[in-house]
Design a protein around this nucleic acid. Structure first.
Length: 213
DNA sequence: ACCCAGGTGTTTC
DNA sequence: GAAACACATGGG
């Protein structure tokens, strides 16, 4: 299937043709969206599988560590042991603990963080790059941000698209969705906010990516 | 045994 | 600035 690079709506057509936008009644892709758990998950999941992250999150939850204050004060070795199965556990432990501390110092509590944090602030944290920052903004903070990941890039690559960098790809996708928001919303996402349209759109691309092109 | 997974930071040319 | 490398476990 050929997609006209100057017409971003063609991507939506492509996804529709693959039935990628159907079956959107299910809950949102990221469990417990809107909570600190998503922020932690965004770091834990880097270069590993979500199955592993779920186990680690359960470890943390059972010890009441899904709270900024507890995480900020945790013994580093203990934290490492609780998230070990996720891989890169030493650096992830350091980064999680530091992030919790920085959020407290800068914003006081999670709600204030949620309402006031900027993308740049997130990007300045150790261990948070473009994808993690955007995942946090969209899935934890409900901002109107389209997440771009390896699957997204792979999907567009397979259709012959070339983008200079992460943000130009993101802009292109975002424009395509915004321009066609009314149609998409009417057909598939009745009554849900634009931020969640981005979330579902991203989730569907990943689901597709997992099945394989 | 080998390869990949819902990446990021540092070092090096 | 881009390319190469380090980080590390678990599952196929």
């Amino acid at each position: 299937m050929k997609i006209d690079i100057y017409n971003s709506f063609d991507l939506l057509s492509f996804l529709k043709s693959k039935n990628l936008l159907a079956n959107c009644k299910d809950e949102f892709w990221w469990e417990n969206s809107g909570t600190l758990e998503v922020v932690i998950g965004a770091i834990l999941v880097q270069n590993t599988k979500w199955e592993q992250v779920k186990k680690a999150i359960l470890n943390l939850k059972s010890r009441n560590l899904l709270i900024l204050e507890s995480l900020s004060n945790i013994d580093l070795r203990l934290l490492e042991s609780l998230i070990q199965n996720c891989g890169f556990y030493r650096q992830k432990a350091i980064r999680l603990k530091l992030l919790a501390t920085n959020i407290i110092n800068e914003f006081g509590d999670f709600d204030n963080f949620k309402n006031n944090v900027s993308r740049d602030w997130l990007l300045n944290q150790k261990g948070i790059g473009f994808e993690s920052a955007d995942s946090i903004l969209n899935y934890a903070l409900y901002r109107e941000v389209m997440v771009v990941d390896k699957y997204t890039q792979k999907l567009l690559d397979s259709q012959g698209f070339v983008f200079e960098d992460y943000e130009s790809l993101q802009d292109w996708l975002t424009c395509g969705i915004v321009e066609n928001y009314n149609e998409v919303e009417n057909l598939y996402y009745k009554g849900i906010p634009l931020s969640k349209v981005y979330a579902r759109f991203h989730a569907k691309i990943v689901e597709f990516g997992k099945i394989g092109l």
